[in-house]
């Protein structure tokens, strides 16, 4: 259990530094540290699927952000914060904190599955009959691509739309793309 508290302390420290530092590049690197800490936490919670996805997306996103930060000339944030924005952020974070306490009270104890307390939960069917119904040894794959494939379809659609939007919006400024209108 101690490893989780150490990781939590690491993540919170990195988050505070990311908010408070004036250098944009340092802030981006601290955000990366948060992501790697979260990935380690998923790994120790025995969720290797999410850990792999988290670390891979973190690396890719970090590369893009660092590239953007380096190519910009202005990497230092100056000037005071807006009072209204700070108040709104603090109020929203406090509301989420209160709601989180309420939600965490309903969860079962650490390490016990949710269908030990809630009878007829859907996860019980997945764990017990996932291999027989779908034939996939990896239960996560059987959930995201068979039982809950609609979610994956929606996610793929979101990604597809985002790429179309980025390609259409950004190609007005590029000269190379204007020569090939059939993209």
């Amino acid at each position: 259990m101690a490893i989780f508290y150490i990781l939590l302390l690491f993540i919170i420290t990195a988050a505070i530094i990311a908010v408070e530092t004036k250098n944009l590049l340092s802030a981006v690197i601290c955000v990366g540290a948060i992501g790697f800490g979260a990935s380690l936490m998923f790994l120790f919670l025995r969720a290797p699927d999410i850990a792999i996805t988290q670390i891979v997306v973190e690396v890719l996103g970090l590369i893009i952000l660092i590239r953007v930060c380096i190519s910009r000339e202005l990497t230092f944030i100056s000037g005071p914060r807006e009072f209204f924005a700070v108040v709104v952020s603090v109020v929203i974070i406090f509301a989420i904190f209160l709601a989180g306490i309420k939600v965490l009270e309903t969860l079962p104890a650490f390490g016990t599955p949710i269908f030990a307390e809630v009878p007829d939960a859907a996860s019980q069917t997945y764990v017990e009959e996932g291999l027989r119904k779908t034939g996939a040894a990896n239960l996560v794959a059987s959930v995201i691509l068979d039982f809950r494939a609609y979610d994956t379809l929606g996610e793929a659609t979101v990604l597809f739309t985002a790429i179309i939007g980025a390609t259409v919006i950004l190609r007005k400024k590029t000269k190379k793309l204007l020569e090939e209108p059939d993209v």
């Binding site: 290797p48 699927d49 850990a51 792999i52 996805t53 891979v56 996939a136 040894a137 990896n138 996560v140 794959a141 059987s142 995201i144 691509l145």
Partner: peptide, 10 residues
């Protein structure tokens, strides 16, 4: 992806 951790997205 259907046997070990990972999958299409990762």
């Amino acid at each position: 992806g259907h046997l070990t951790p990972g999958g299409g997205f990762a």
